[in-house]
């Protein structure tokens, strides 16, 4: 599978502030998540890809083109949904999306026809003749997605697409994005600080932390059986149990129903039982579990600290 985007030893800065420091990675066809806390460098990577920022050093290629020297050829194959509001004041959604299509190089007739189709697709068909200024936050997010999709890009860049949405709106947006990636065959990069969003949509993830790539790979690889994870509920002195577990090389964190215990690779449940005996607590529940993306995320951030 050839990469759509590749970046090697990329350094990007805003004046004196270094935003990306020697990052390397690639975006393969399918859905890729860029994960990291605010200010980690996710949006900077997208802006470099769009040719808005020129790297201080390193190399970036998109569709075998250099965004720095051929930004127009790269941008015509990309659909970008920015994090913040974006619409043209006074325009209806239908006019706005058609306009966006035309700006991407579609002929006028085709842009108008596709604008209507895409607006129906994102669920704004009935309100497409309303000015975007009057839309709710959720509707504006959908209009933003529509303008990014109208020219049928090869790669969709979604920057925090669920920002400001209520739980139902968030579910619908994620469902829509998943549909774009899985059924419509459009590759996408989902940039988010929300693990759940990335887990729901993406097959691969690149974790950013303070301008560096902290971890990268498929979600299955990253959350695979690298460390043994158990869900445990105990009765007794929790602090003593935690200390005993730490002596066994384990870490634990609070979970919905008890504790989530992570043991070193290859370790088994006997360490938990040993720790329970040492702390004189009663084990009420012990269940093997998998490492979640959150564990990977926290581990990656912890390693970089």
């Amino acid at each position: 599978m050839s990469a759509l985007v590749q970046f090697r030893d990329l350094n990007v800065s805003y004046g004196a502030l270094k935003a990306l420091t020697g990052v390397s990675g690639e975006v393969l066809p399918g859905a890729t998540g860029l994960l990291g806390p605010n200010g980690a460098g996710k949006t900077t990577l997208l802006k470099t890809l769009l040719g808005f920022l020129v790297p201080d050093s390193g190399q970036m290629r998109a569709f075998d083109l250099d965004p720095g020297t051929a930004p127009l050829d790269v941008r015509r194959r990309i659909g970008y949904m920015p994090e913040n509001d974006c619409h043209v004041a006074g325009m209806t959604a239908a006019a706005f999306v058609a306009y966006a299509g035309e700006l991407s190089g579609l002929p006028r007739d085709e842009a108008v026809s596709r604008a209507h189709e895409v607006l129906y697709y994102v669920g704004l068909g009935e309100s497409r003749y309303r000015p975007v200024d009057t839309y709710s936050t959720g509707m504006k997010q959908r209009a933003k997605l529509a303008q990014a999709l109208v020219h049928d890009p090869d790669l969709l860049l979604l920057d925090e697409p669920t920002n400001g949405l209520d739980p139902q709106g968030r579910e619908e947006m994620l469902e829509l994005i998943r549909d774009v990636a899985q059924k419509r065959g459009i590759s996408l990069v989902l940039c988010s600080h929300l693990l759940r969003d990335v887990e729901r949509v993406c097959e691969r993830v690149i974790v950013f932390d303070r301008g560096r790539v902290a971890a990268a790979g498929t979600i299955a690889e990253l959350t695979g059986p690298r460390r043994a994870v158990f869900e445990v509920r105990v009765k007794g002195d929790l602090a003593a149990f935690t200390a005993a577990l730490a002596a066994e090389g384990g870490e634990c964190s609070a979970a919905d129903d008890g504790l989530r215990v992570l043991l070193p690779e290859g370790a088994g449940a006997e360490r938990i039982l040993r720790a329970a005996r040492a702390a004189a607590v009663q084990v009420r529940r012990l269940k093997a579990a998998g490492e979640t993306l959150e564990d990977v995320f926290l581990r990656a951030l912890g390693a970089g600290a």
Partner: peptide
């Protein structure tokens, strides 16, 4: 007066500059 100011206010500037436009 509103030709660029409105685009800066509504974020439309990104709609333009993320397209194949200089």
């Amino acid at each position: 007066a509103g030709l660029i100011a409105n685009d800066l206010r509504t974020g439309a500037i990104l709609v333009y500059l993320s397209r194949p436009l200089t």
